[in-house]
Design a protein around this nucleic acid. Structure first.
Lengths: 220, 220
DNA sequence: GCGCTCCTAGTCAAACTTGACTACTGGAGT
DNA sequence: ACTCCAGTAGTCAAGTTTGACTAGGAGCGC
């Protein structure tokens, strides 16, 4: 699963009805363009594709009020709602260390009831621990560690990533158990959307090394 | 950058001359099909694409000795060699937390002289630390942490991933400084390829949760 | 009142990725 | 002798991602 569908479905869902540019702005507000492949082309493609598949209903709308080409507004269908929750549950419970998917899941975690969110994270925890044990218990080949040489460093890397994921997951479970955040069914939901007229704090966060040699090449 | 080009160039380079199926087997031996998108389609596509771009030279070869369709053998050109090292250096020095790219870089780290490998990892370390400082120093918006609510958990997630990456990088630098592994120019290089007739230990590692609900869906 | 730049909103071709499929061989079983 | 299976080697269509491009309106300096 790529994170795109979850991100786009969730963003449209927050507004009830939204056009592509709005989705794009929301995702940028969350910093999603930093940690996922949420670029214009991908967003518009996902919208069209999901409309074709019946997850979104497309309203053809008159030319925008603020310049630019006419825009299309989208709304989740029942099927879209279903798929959104299926993707969300998988993003949170899977022990797959793909951070973009997990991040997207966290972004919408408050759309689930508290108990369910905690249960999904526990499932994730279990998967991470099992994976860790399986790898530490079997990754040294019969011929001895020398037979894989520096390839063992790759295993170390993934083990450390999994351990860090485990710690983070435990901490989040604790915070949720401690009553943090307003979850589904607990009153006025928190909507992480950019209020009108306020500047996006994440659009302007400095990114050290961005243009430097050896810096990250996001989107490559 | 996706990891594919680096992986494929490196795999072909290890053999001097290799056909697609051999590359595919090598990558599977390293477990690359687990932590990257090294699937048959992608591998053959990368080979053809890089041949078209002059990074690889394609020898059209007679039907294989062991059944199956005729195969094409590839060999790095000078330009391919150049690109390989450029990709390798970037994979190791970039602080971009994409683990597949980094893993690929580690897989070929012994193709660099020891001093250079250490220098690249130090560069990576610097990037990770700068990013960490920039984010902790500026991610709380002016309106207070409540204004972003649970979105802050995403930042926590990335910070913890970066911290874990920092620790792993430090440890690897230390091991290299301590003389671990045979690096370029230090004698008989270690070639991580599957010897004839030996069974692949990684092809058969058990993957807990693979088919279970909430398990990872590799390749999605 | 003209050119300039920024913002809005989106399109497009080229490249990449995915999963399923083809086709051929050698050997095991019967 | 015949069928079935595993291994070899690769192709292909459909879907996704990328980065560059289009195009209209608003505000602003001069």
């Amino acid at each position: 699963m790529s994170a795109m569908r979850l991100l786009v479905l969730g963003a449209v869902r927050q507004h009830g009805r939204a056009h592509g540019y709005m989705v794009r702005n929301d995702l940028e507000f969350w910093g999603a363009h930093e940690w996922s492949n949420a670029k214009p082309g991908s967003i518009y493609h996902a919208l069209k594709q999901m409309a074709k598949q019946g997850l979104l209903f497309a309203h053809d709308v008159a030319p925008s009020t603020a310049g630019g080409p006419p825009r299309t507004e989208y709304e989740l269908t029942d099927k879209g709602e279903e798929v959104f929750f299926a993707l969300l549950r998988e993003a949170l419970s899977s022990w797959n260390p793909k951070l973009d998917v997990l991040s997207a899941g966290v972004g919408f975690i408050v759309d689930l009831p508290r108990e369910e969110a905690i249960a999904l994270l526990r499932q994730r925890l279990k998967g991470l621990e099992d994976w860790h044990d399986a790898v530490t218990g079997s990754y040294v080949p019969a011929e001895g560690a020398e037979s894989i040489g520096h390839i063992a460093e790759i295993m170390e890397l993934w083990l450390s990533a999994v351990d860090s994921g485990t710690a983070w997951t435990r901490a989040l479970i604790e915070r949720l158990e401690g009553g943090a955040y307003v979850m589904a069914g607990e009153g006025e939901p928190f909507r992480a959307v950019l209020p009108e007229g306020v500047e996006n704090p994440y659009g302007t966060v400095p990114h050290p090394g961005d243009a430097a040699a050896g810096g990250p090449r996001r989107g490559e």
